[in-house]
Design a protein around this nucleic acid. Sequence first.
DNA 1: GTCTATAGTTCGATAGAC
DNA 2: GTCTATCGAACTATAGAC
Lengths: 223, 223
Amino acid sequence: MDRTNSGRLPGASKARGPYAVGDERRRRILDAAVDHFAQWGFHASSLARIAKSVGVTQGGLLHHFRGKEDLLVSVLERSEEQDAESFFATGFDSAADCFQRLLALVDLNTRRPGRTRMFNVLAGEASEPGHPAHAFFRRRYDTLATRLAETLQAAVESGELRPDTDCATVAREVIAVMDGTQLQWALAPESVDMTHRLRTYLDRLYGAVSAGATALPPTPGAA
Amino acid sequence: MDRTNSGRLPGASKARGPYAVGDERRRRILDAAVDHFAQWGFHASSLARIAKSVGVTQGGLLHHFRGKEDLLVSVLERSEEQDAESFFATGFDSAADCFQRLLALVDLNTRRPGRTRMFNVLAGEASEPGHPAHAFFRRRYDTLATRLAETLQAAVESGELRPDTDCATVAREVIAVMDGTQLQWALAPESVDMTHRLRTYLDRLYGAVSAGATALPPTPGAA
DNA sequence: GTCTATAGTTCGATAGAC
DNA sequence: GTCTATCGAACTATAGAC
């Protein structure tokens, strides 16, 4: 019978409470898996190597995750929980506000290179229809583009953006610039200021689609 | 002694002439390798599987290529010969001409999905400094961005583009949009018109940086 | 919950026949 | 130029002790 806990809710593994020791181990396995998937991709990652880097055996790892695919899915699900949902959790005051939060997200990505590189690698691999993350990434881009387009559309209707703005196209373009810049950054982090590059792009974009102002206001929070 | 021919010039393997039969085999191995690297990445690709898909044994494959890394390098070198160099082979009349040829290149990429997906996957993997293609991709992006920036700079000096154009930044942004769009296309080729998307982007970009005209002239050749 | 042990494949690379 | 044979190592996954 199936004794793995991969699908359960956080902290639900024991009657003892939400912070049982096993959850800490599980979390550390997920963290290690991120780095391994980033370096090796899915297919060439090894459960034994991942387990070793955490300090457990392969058998110990397989108590927490049914198998390799289950580990991958768990990593992706946690990643989505961590920021895609939190990014859209509260609505946006304006398109400018949305762009500012995109910049903050990119800035965050420079501070977690493992996760960022993992997404670069998996997004490339997952174009194969049989890849375990194929459906995940298709859904992810679809959802991301749709929500971003909705946010822009709301800004059109509020009068912030020009009425002739093609929101769906702009949304997908913004995502493309983020991904493409992320690829260049991962290859040469020391010579690519990802946040600065995206800001330059969003500045000109905002100037082109905004009804009034010609540039974004200066960034308050991020970097 | 080293009897592999991986570094030789095309058609130089025999005294018989440039089209000896072995070269055809070699070419078919390279073609197969592209598809395997696209699906599995470098690490998880298997020489035995590649050989089998060509119809030779692993031993037969290893006559032509010293090993897996050598096969990868040969694939990348041939790819560069095929279009990065030919893309810049003849100079550009103008920035508009350069953009038109970029569109033709993207259009070509939709018609060779294997090669395009391989680049998506390897560009992601190669961010790891120890990856066999790491140096290749760093050099590639550097060269590409530099040459593109030079082309734009020439257009600034000819008066086609605005004098305040930041050519280096624009060049890297164009590359990012191409790569990012390519990722989205690979995941959902049936719903992403890569050429159209890039054209929309380049149109607005050209309008923003050109000194006179506000849009690219309609595409003559491509798509 | 973590361990050891092991089954059954497949890997890259080498050696040598023809 | 391609083959067979083979090496040592690594892989996922399972079974069962504690």
